[in-house]
Design a protein around this nucleic acid. Structure first.
Length: 271
DNA sequence: CCCGATTCCTGTAGGC
DNA sequence: TGCCTACAGGAATCGG
């Protein structure tokens, strides 16, 4: 599931091939993925140079000369740059031909991802205005989480996965960070002390940074801009490890459902 | 306001 | 071996 590290890995990989390249043609192979793909966008983006590529939350933003393309990878999406001679694959829903010969391809078997086009910065910004702060910024601190969580009974895992509070943390990294911080995922966020939030914030930042350095996590679908998998799955301690011995204490890893999502934790290490 | 349930979707895994 | 069902979940939306 693409979370912040996978999106960041994709953006860094894309940059080299697509920044300063011009879109010469595009193909939409479906009427919609998560949201409708408007064929009128093709005319708008043809002939446009890709000025800049960056990440905001789990979104890949491509600034064009006359607007913005926003890509979301959803659950199983990837955005890659194919060589001119590479065949299109099944589930490649969007293709953009670039003037350097490469082809930008959006691949997404489950189609939870999306592409949106905006004509100006104001409308683009409005569409992402609900997003919270970036976890790798200085604004993401123990003080911030402590303050925002007072009087909340919501489980801490749900809180840190709430994209209106902090962006980019999904199921995998939420589980891993809570394990590292020795906090059970179901703990009431309002009952967590500031020192424990300090541990959690540091764990989130450290794990996200390490995962970026390892090119993200590939469980089944994720591939980077060059169609290569990540390596962070080797460093996972609890995610997907139901009944496996905890790497610290050998206690079997437990699974519970929180907010409809599987949550993995060590009942001995995490309190 | 806040919570959980539902929806979108297909590849994969497990049971029989 | 093959068929069927359950499950995975990001995020928008809906209902209590």
């Amino acid at each position: 599931m693409p979370e912040l590290p996978e999106v960041e890995t994709t953006v860094v990989g894309l940059r080299h091939y697509v920044e300063k390249a011009t879109i010469t043609d595009s193909l939409f192979h479906r009427d919609k993925i998560r949201y409708p793909l408007d064929k009128a966008w093709i005319k708008k983006i043809t002939g446009q140079k890709i000025v800049r590529v960056y990440r905001r939350a789990k979104i890949i933003v491509m600034q064009l000369e006359n607007g913005y393309l926003l890509w979301h990878l959803g659950m199983t999406g990837s955005l890659r740059v194919s060589q001119p001679n590479e065949e299109k694959r099944q589930h490649d829903h969007v293709e953009c031909q670039l003037d350097n010969g490469r082809i930008l391809r959006f691949h997404d078997p489950r189609r939870f991802g999306y592409l949106k086009w905006f004509a100006d910065e104001t409308s683009m910004q409005a569409s992402i205005a609900h997003y919270g702060i970036e976890p790798l910024s200085d604004a993401f601190s123990a003080e911030y989480l402590y303050k925002i969580s007072r009087n909340k009974t919501q489980p801490i895992k749900n809180l840190i996965m709430n994209q209106e509070i902090v962006v980019g943390v999904g199921n995998i990294y939420a589980c891993e960070a809570l394990y590292s911080a020795e906090i059970r995922p179901q703990t009431s966020s309002g009952k967590i002390s500031k020192p424990r939030y300090q541990r959690l914030v540091q764990a989130i930042k450290r794990i996200l940074q390490k995962a970026i350095a390892q090119g993200g996590t590939t469980i089944s679908d994720f591939e980077n801009a060059e169609a290569k998998p990540g390596y962070f799955q080797q460093s996972l301690s609890v995610y997907g490890k139901t009944d496996s011995p905890c790497v610290q204490c050998k206690t079997p890893i437990k699974t519970i459902k929180l907010g409809g999502r599987n949550s993995f934790y060590c009942p001995s290490c995490q309190k």
